[in-house]
């Protein structure tokens, strides 16, 4: 069973507690990413997350497997929302248990950092002014152009 999954519906971390509970665990570290009402100086009203799910689940599972290889942890799981989210909504949750807290904190940090960098998920922000934009994909008028791609 994959240690990474997508959810099209709102969820609470409590729902996934059984995926990280373990009798050898003496500590539980988690990260929750929430939708905030601003980004780069602009008011944000809501977000849309889109995912390439087949590859995303594989890559997310690989990331958690890397965390297991790097840190002495007991269990780990990550869930990322897709769809339309409002301010304050839970967008991503990472839960890690370990015998000792250092490994739980470190693995939790590793997983969320790698998920943000590697899992094929895209975020569209809808702004207070009515416009919208795909984060990391827009040629911004206020900054340097994203530059030509490839290959």
């Amino acid at each position: 069973m994959s240690h990474f999954e997508f959810s099209r519906e709102p969820f609470t971390p409590e729902r996934y507690r059984s995926r990280v509970s373990d009798p050898v665990a003496g500590g539980y570290a988690s990260f929750e990413g929430w939708v905030r009402n601003h980004n780069e100086g602009r008011g944000v009203q809501r977000l849309e997350y889109e995912g390439y799910e087949a590859l995303g689940i594989k890559e997310g599972d690989r990331i958690v497997a890397e965390a297991f290889a790097r840190f002495p942890i007991a269990q780990a799981h990550c869930v990322h929302r897709l769809g339309v989210l409002g301010i304050g909504d839970l967008a991503v949750w990472v839960g890690v248990t370990a015998a000792h807290r250092e490994a739980a904190f470190a693995a939790c940090r590793y997983i969320i950092d790698e998920v943000k960098n590697r899992v094929p998920i895209w975020k569209k922000e809808h702004y207070a002014e009515g416009d919208s934009g795909w984060i990391n994909c827009e040629v911004r008028t206020s900054g340097a152009p994203a530059g030509s791609a490839l290959p």
Binding site: K58, A91, V119, P120, N136, A146
Partner: peptide
């Protein structure tokens, strides 16, 4: 599966181009 840009494309392949991601 992620591939290099020099990877071959074959009959029947399913290809996805992945813009810069922004999870979390």
């Amino acid at each position: 599966e992620f591939r290099d840009w020099s990877s071959p494309v074959r009959d029947g392949d399913f290809v996805v181009f992945i813009p810069p991601v922004a999870g979390g």
